[in-house]
Design a binder for these strands. Structure first.
Length: 890
DNA sequence: TATCCGACATTCT
DNA sequence: AGAATGTCGGATA
C-alpha cells in the first residue's frame, strides 16, 4: 500500500459520507490493516466501552462525537484511563461534519472537515507503519563560505594565468587549504582573535604585492616550534606552531594583487566558526582538481543526504540504545565503550565529508552520554573524548584529497571540542595538531580494502559508507572498465553494462562477508532498474547479503551553483541475519517499516526479472524502430521538406513521415529520407539529397563505434533497419511517468518508426489493449529501466516477460473491441495531442472511462474480478511471473 | 542483428 | 530558473 492509495481510500470514505457503524473499520481499512485484524476488532479485540466506538491497542481510539463537539470529545478521551491502559497512538472523533484527531506520540492535533478527510492522510501515516521523515537542512554559513572561497580562487587564478595547469593545481590546493585553516583558526581561538586577517590588513600594502612574501613567512613560522624560531619580527612570531604536517612543505605562493587581497580580508570577516568543514573541503576539492574543473562542487554530498546514509545504517540503533540506557550508568558506560570503538570507512571519501559528519554525530552522542552520567552520578568521570579521528578511514582517487580530508577532520575535532567546552567547561588544547584520519590515496576498486581499514581483532563495528562515482558503460574510461572487469569477470559474463558504482557494492560485500556489519552508498538509481538489477543484485544475494534499508529515487541536489543531473538512491546492504532493527524503506519524506525490500527498492520479495528474447506467453514479436545514426542528415523538419520539394518535386518518393516518442506524444511533425537500395542512383541525382547522403557518410566514417563506421558505405539508409511497410502497434520508448496509462498508438504502413519507439508490425489489435492496460503499465514501470524516473519501455524486460492468463479467441475479440473504444474515445477530441489526452489532470472523461472499462474486463480475465489497487496488481503479476519462469526452467 | 543507458539534454512554463 | 519530460549514438551482446 502506498501513500496515494491511502489518500484515495480516505477520499472514498469522505465522498460516501459518515456511517456511524462502519466508519472506524472503513478508516483503518485505508491503512493496510489485515482483514483478520478488522474481524477481530469487530469482536473482543475492541477495547472500547461505548456503542460505535473502536479502541485498537497502540493504534487508534475512535468515538463518534455529539454535534460540533469533536475537539472536546478528543480532549475527554485523552483523560480516560482506557487510554493509559491500551496506549493508542491516535485519538479520533467526528460528528460526520467535523473531525479532530490527536497524535499522542508527537503531541500534534489535526482539525478538519469530514468531507475533506483525505487531507489528513499524512497525519495518520503511523497507522500504516509509515513515519514522516524530516531531513536536516544546510546552514547559510556553508553557502556563504563556499561562495567566498570560489571567489578567492577565481581572483587568484586571474592574477596567475600561468597557474592553469596540473603542476600548479596541487600547489594551489595546498595553498587554499592553508588559508582556510588560518581563516578558521582566527575565528575559533586556535589563533588570537582575527590574528590572520588583521596582520594581513596591517602588514601588507593595499596593492597586495607583498601578500605573497608575508604568507610565505607565516607559513614557515607555523611549521617551526617556538624553541627553533630564532630572531624574527614580533608580528610574525605571534603565529603559533601547528603540527600535523599542514605547513611542512615549503611551496611556491601565488602572486597576489589588490583584488585577491581584498577578497581574502573580506573573507576573514565571515564567521568561519559556523561552517561545516565537509562543505568547504569539497568545494576546494572540486574547484582545484583539474579533471573536476568544470564540476565546481557538483558532486559533494550534502549533509541531509549524508544523514540519509548514516542514520539508518547505525546512528538510529545507537540512538535507541541510548534511550534504553537512560537510567543506568552501567548501560551508559557500555554504550560509551561501543561508540568509542566504532569505525567508519568511506572508500570514495573525497574531502572526507561522510567521515566528518559521522565523527560529529558520534561526538554529539558521547556528550549526551557524559551529560546523563553526570546527572545520574554527580561526577565527571572521564577525560575528554574517546572518539578518535584514527577510527575514521578513507580511500580517495584524487591525489590531494587526503590532505583536505585530514584538515577537515581536524577542524571537525576542534569544533566538537569547543562544544564540549561549552557544556562541560573545559576542552583539550587545540595545538599542536594530533594524528588525523587514515586516508589513503588510490583507486578504491583496486586497493585491498583490508589494507586500508584492517580487519579488527574482536570484530569491532565497521560501517562502510560513501558516495562513489557513477558512470554508465558508455562513459567509462578504459581504466574504469578494467576495474569492473577485475571484479566481475570471475563471477559472470554479463557485467559490462553495469554502472561503475556497482564495483563499490561488490567490494563492500567481499569486505564484510565475514563480518556482521552493513554498508550503504549513495548511487545512481540505475543500479535498481532494468537490466542492472539482474547484473548486480544476483551477486549480492548469492553471497547471503540483503537490502537492509533504502531510499527510493530522489533528485541529486546540493548547494553548488550547478547541480549534477542525476537521480539517486541510497541502498544499505548487510549480511543476512545480521540486520539490526527493522528494514526501513524511505520515500520522499516518509519512512516505512517493511518485511523486505526487493532489488527494485519496493516492498516486495527479492524477485529479479531478467531479459527474454521472445514473449513468455506467446505474444507477437515486438521489435525496435529504425535507427538513423546520421547526425540529423536523413531527418527533415516540415520546412526542410518543403524547401527540398520546392526545388525538386520528384524527391517526394524518398520522403516519409517519421515517428519517435515525441512525434507521437506531442504531435510533432517530422520526416525522413528513405531510399530503397535499388533507387540510390536516382536519389543521388537530386542535389539536395546527394549532399545529405555525403554528410551521413562523413559523419559515420568518423565515428568511434565500428558498427557505425561499417555503415558509412550505406549512407543513403539508416544504420539499423528493423521493419517498415506494414501497419504496426506503436509504443514510445520513453514517456512521462505521470500519465495514468502508457500512451500506445497505431501506425500506418507508410510511416517510419524510429529507434525511440517499439513496434509490433502487423499485430492484432488485442495486443494494443494489453499494452494499454493498467496492469501492463505497473509491470513496465517496475521491471523496465527508467530515464531518471521516466518510463523507459523495453521489449525484452517489459513486454516479453509480461504475464497474461490464457486468452481464448473470444477473449481476444472482446479486448479488440475495447481497444477500438479507446481509439474512438481519442478521436472524439480532434486536435488534441496524446500528451493532452493523457495529461493526469485533464484526461477526458470518455477516454478515462474507456480505459477503466478495459481494465475491469481484462482484470476479470486474470482473477475473476478487478484488482483493488496497484500494489495488488503487482503482487499478482510477480506471482504469475514466478510460476511462468519456473515452468520454463523445469 | 538487436537494445540499454545517460553525476543528461532540451523544452516548457 | 525550476519543472517537465524525452534525443541520439556509443557500447555491448
Amino acid at each position: 500500500m502506498n501513500i496515494a492509495e491511502i489518500e484515495m481510500g480516505l477520499k472514498a470514505i469522505a465522498e460516501q459520507g459518515f456511517d456511524k457503524n462502519e466508519f472506524p473499520f472503513q478508516f483503518i481499512g485505508c491503512f493496510d490493516t489485515p482483514k483478520a485484524t478488522t474481524t477481530k476488532l469487530k469482536g473482543k479485540m475492541n477495547k472500547a466501552k461505548g456503542e460505535n466506538e473502536l479502541l485498537w491497542a497502540k493504534k487508534l481510539y475512535f468515538k463518534p462525537s455529539p454535534q460540533g463537539a469533536a475537539a472536546q470529545t478528543v480532549d475527554a478521551m485523552n483523560e480516560e484511563g482506557l487510554v493509559n491502559t491500551h496506549a493508542p497512538r491516535f485519538l479520533l472523533s467526528t460528528d460526520g461534519e467535523e473531525f479532530t484527531a490527536y497524535d499522542r506520540n508527537k503531541d500534534d492535533h489535526f482539525h478538519g472537515t469530514f468531507s475533506k478527510l483525505n487531507d489528513s492522510f499524512d497525519f495518520f501515516l503511523g497507522l500504516a507503519n509509515i513515519e514522516r521523515y524530516e531531513a536536516v537542512e544546510e546552514t547559510i554559513a556553508d553557502i556563504r563560505a563556499a561562495g567566498r572561497l570560489a571567489k578567492l580562487y577565481d581572483a587568484i587564478l586571474a592574477n596567475n594565468s600561468d597557474w592553469y595547469n596540473d603542476e600548479h593545481a596541487h600547489t594551489l590546493n595546498l595553498f587554499m587549504t592553508r588559508l582556510l585553516f588560518c581563516l578558521f583558526a582566527e575565528d575559533t581561538g586556535i589563533f588570537e582573535q582575527d590574528l590572520f586577517s588583521k596582520s594581513l590588513n596591517d602588514y601588507t600594502d593595499i596593492e597586495g604585492r607583498d601578500v605573497g612574501p608575508f604568507l610565505e613567512q607565516i607559513f614557515e613560522i607555523m611549521d617551526t616550534p617556538p624553541n627553533e624560531r630564532g630572531d624574527i619580527p614580533a608580528h610574525i612570531n605571534r603565529f603559533p606552531f601547528v603540527n600535523g604536517g599542514l605547513f611542512k612543505d615549503h611551496v611556491k605562493i601565488p602572486k597576489f594583487g589588490k583584488l585577491p587581497r581584498r577578497i581574502l580580508i573580506e573573507a576573514g570577516r565571515l564567521n568561519w566558526r559556523e561552517i561545516n568543514p565537509d562543505i568547504f573541503g569539497s568545494m576546494i576539492q572540486a574547484v582545484v582538481e583539474p579533471e573536476m574543473r568544470g564540476d565546481l562542487g557538483m558532486h559533494y554530498t550534502s549533509v541531509p543526504n549524508i544523514m540519509k546514509v548514516l542514520h539508518p545504517l547505525f546512528l538510529l540503533d545507537l540512538e535507541k540504545q541510548f534511550s534504553d540506557s537512560q537510567d543506568s550508568p552501567n548501560k551508559l558506560e557500555k554504550l560509551h565503550q561501543r561508540l568509542s570503538k566504532i569505525r567508519v570507512f568511506d572508500p570514495a571519501c573525497g574531502s572526507g565529508n561522510f567521515l566528518i559528519i559521522a565523527y560529529r554525530e558520534l561526538r554529539k552522542l558521547e556528550m549526551r552520554i557524559y551529560k546523563r552520567l553526570q546527572e545520574l552520578t554527580g561526577e565527571l568521570g572521564w577525560k575528554w573524548s574517546e572518539v578518535k579521528l584514527t577510527n575514521f578511514y578513507g580511500i580517495e582517487y584524487a591525489d590531494f584529497a587526503s590532505e583536505t580530508a585530514k584538515l577537515s577532520l581536524w577542524i571537525a575535532e576542534y569544533q566538537m571540542n569547543k562544544q564540549f567546552a561549552d557544556i562541560f567547561g573545559d576542552a583539550p588544547p587545540a595545538l599542536p595538531l594530533k594524528e588525523s584520519g587514515n586516508i589513503k590515496h588510490g583507486n578504491a576498486l583496486r586497493v585491498n580494502w583490508e589494507e586500508v581499514c584492517p580487519p579488527a581483532k574482536d570484530d569491532i563495528e565497521t560501517y562502510i559508507v560513501g558516495n562513489p562515482p557513477y558512470l554508465g558503460s558508455t562513459f567509462q574510461s578504459k581504466e574504469q572498465k578494467e576495474d569492473l572487469e577485475l571484479l566481475f569477470k570471475p563471477l559472470t559474463k554479463s557485467y559490462k553494462n553495469l554502472d561503475y558504482v556497482a564495483g563499490w557494492y561488490l567490494k563492500a560485500v567481499y569486505y564484510n562477508q565475514k563480518r556482521r556489519y552493513g554498508a550503504a552508498f549513495v548511487a545512481t538509481n540505475s543500479i535498481c532498474q532494468g537490466e542492472q538489477v539482474n547484473m548486480l543484485w544476483q551477486h549480492v544475494y548469492a553471497r547471503q547479503f540483503e537490502i537492509s534499508f533504502a531510499h527510493q529515487s530522489f533528485k541529486w541536489k546540493n548547494n553548488a551553483s550547478k547541480n549534477a543531473g542525476v537521480t539517486c538512491v541510497i541502498v544499505g546492504i548487510c549480511p543476512k541475519n545480521a540486520i539490526i532493527g527493522d528494514k526501513i524503506l524511505f520515500t520522499a519524506g516518509v519512512a516505512k517499516k517493511v518485511k523486505n525490500i526487493g532489488p527494485y527498492l519496493l516492498e516486495m520479495s527479492d524477485v529479479i526479472v531478467g531479459k527474454e528474447g521472445s514473449s513468455l506467453t506467446g505474444l507477437p514479436k515486438m521489435s525496435w524502430g529504425n535507427k538513423a545514426t546520421d547526425n540529423g542528415n536523413l531527418i527533415l523538419s516540415p520546412d526542410e521538406r518543403a524547401s527540398i520539394l520546392e526545388k525538386s518535386p520528384e524527391a517526394v518518393e524518398f520522403i516519409k513521415r517519421y515517428y519517435g516518442s515525441q512525434e507521437f506524444i506531442k504531435g510533432i511533425e517530422r520526416y525522413c529520407i528513405w531510399i530503397a537500395d535499388n533507387k540510390v542512383e536516382e536519389a543521388k541525382s537530386i542535389p539536395e539529397l546527394n549532399k545529405r547522403i555525403q554528410a551521413v557518410h562523413d559523419f559515420r566514417a568518423a565515428s568511434k563505434a565500428p558498427q557505425t563506421r561499417d555503415y558509412a558505405v550505406h549512407s543513403h539508409r539508416f544504420r539499423q533497419i528493423q521493419g517498415y511497410g506494414v501497419d504496426a502497434v506503436f509504443v514510445p520508448r520513453i514517456s512521462s511517468e505521470k500519465r495514468p496509462y502508457m500512451p500506445v498508438g497505431f501506425m500506418s504502413e507508410d510511416d517510419i518508426i524510429n529507434d525511440q519507439a517499439y513496434a509490433i508490425y502487423g499485430a492484432e489489435p488485442f495486443v494494443f489493449a494489453l499494452i494499454s492496460s493498467k496492469l501492463h503499465y505497473v509491470w513496465v514501470k517496475t521491471v523496465c529501466g527508467q530515464m531518471e524516473t521516466r518510463i523507459r519501455y523495453s521489449n525484452t524486460m517489459g513486454y516479453n516477460t509480461f504475464p497474461i492468463p490464457f486468452l481464448s479467441d473470444d477473449d481476444k475479440k472482446i479486448l479488440e473491441e475495447l481497444a477500438w473504444e479507446i481509439i474512438e474515445a481519442r478521436e472524439e477530441h480532434p486536435g488534441k495531442t496524446i500528451a493532452d489526452l493523457y495529461d493526469p489532470k485533464k484526461m477526458p472523461e470518455n477516454l478515462l472511462k474507456a480505459h477503466k472499462k478495459l481494465d475491469m474486463v481484462l482484470e476479470t480475465m486474470y482473477v475473476g474480478e478487478p484488482f483493488k489497487n496497484d500494489t495488488v496488481r503487482l503482487e499478482h503479476l510477480f506471482k504469475m511471473y514466478a510460476k511462468m519462469t519456473k515452468k520454463k526452467a523445469g
